[in-house]
Design a protein around this nucleic acid. Structure first.
Lengths: 223, 223
DNA sequence: CGGTTTTCCGTACAGTGCACGGAAGGACGT
DNA sequence: ACGTCCTTCCGTGCACTGTACGGAAAACCG
């Protein structure tokens, strides 16, 4: 009589417990929770209840895990179901990009150092190119437009994230404002006093900057 | 008879050998040579022929050194001697920013994670604000314009640096192109074949994207 | 059953940032 | 002249990192 299922530990332990997918998923969770400095292979393995070196069966290095985690979250951006007007398509994609980078604040720091060659990253850049190509752009102007948009969203959310990470407390907020004010003359300080910052401000700022660029692009489209 | 100057080892050894300036200067050199991953307090101390822990007399942590090094190289950007037209001023400042980030390729990665509150960074952002304020911008549009410009230059040079770091060899170049081409259909692949990249291309791209944004800004100026 | 392959992982090593405490020497009060 | 203090320098040590290596166990294959 084979051992009852209640006595067996679990399903065949030979089906590998780990997998690249599980590792990447855990990596994203760990990065969300602890950020890049708190991300270590030992912590990642602990999260998966596995030995540290087991990870290296599925991944060549820590860098690999970071690359995979990055492409994974880029995949959270949904492609538009059907082709629409270029401006709306791009605004939607970029707004989603921003949302992803806010959910996963470690993303901008990583994109600043590694090439984005994962399947999801490539699919997204392809989408940008084709939207603007259909709108009538081509050649260096096309490349420049795509590059400008990506640079903008990365840079914007990077500083947004820094801001939220830095001014966690009202005290820190006041300290920063004081430091900045120390470098301004009276008229400038007066202006700065009116530049309060809250959640909504970033949303507004983001859309304003985006419109700025999109207007610049629109001015370059063939008539 | 006091010992001759030729017999004395050096000037008073009591004048401190180290200083914050010396440390920061060495840090910039080390970062230029080895990049962020190769930057360690031990290596920095070795470069100064000092014990590792001596550095901590002048600096609280490695993070401090990075912050100081960052503001140091931002200081390499020259302020315009006299106020000129806004467009030229900004284009000049941003071109210089790009040059600094090309000379010191570790900069974009650091700006993506740390607040820029050093004196040189503050002076530069103040210059941007005042140039655009004089041009007639104010309120959220002013903030958005400044933010867009900084985000653009950071993002652009970040990917430029990644590109140069990644395609060091023709083989690597071919490999990347092949990988990207695998994700394109025929018509797109045809277009991509024409997008060669060399030094001059980045210069052109940079100016094209910059013009894009500056045009968008110009469209928002009061008549 | 023997051999091979795949997964798992303990150990070990060279490297990290930095806390601590001590040593050396100039400055200074008496 | 002599103790006292303060500044600068830095050796040692600790907890932690990424990962090379090699071994153990288990499943599959003949």
């Amino acid at each position: 009589m084979p051992e009852s299922i209640w006595l067996r530990e679990d399903a065949s332990p030979r089906r590998p417990r780990l997998s690249r997918e599980r590792i990447v998923e855990a990596a994203v969770g760990l990065l969300d929770a602890e950020g890049v400095p708190g991300f270590s292979m030992r912590a990642l393995a602990a999260r998966l209840r596995a030995g540290t070196m087991s990870l290296y069966e599925y991944v060549r290095s820590k860098e690999d895990v970071l690359d995979l985690a990055l492409d994974e979250v880029i995949g959270e951006i949904e492609e538009p179901r059907e082709p629409g007007p270029w401006r709306g398509t791009l605004a939607g994609q970029l707004t989603q990009s921003r949302a992803v980078m806010r959910r996963h604040p470690w993303v901008p720091a990583l994109t600043a150092t590694r090439p984005l060659l994962g399947p999801n990253a490539l699919a997204r850049s392809r989408l940008f190119y084709s939207a603007l190509a259909r709108a009538g752009l081509s050649g260096p102007e096309l490349t420049a437009a795509v590059g400008t948009l990506s640079s903008y969203v990365n840079g914007f959310v990077a500083s947004e994230n820094i801001w939220w990470a830095t001014v966690r407390t009202p005290a820190a907020d006041a300290e920063i404002r004081a430091r900045v004010a120390g470098h301004l003359n009276e008229r400038e300080a007066e202006l700065a006093r009116h530049s309060q910052v809250d959640d909504g401000d970033f949303d507004r700022q983001f859309l304003l900057g985006l419109d700025l660029i999109l207007d610049g692009i629109a001015a370059r489209l063939p008539p």
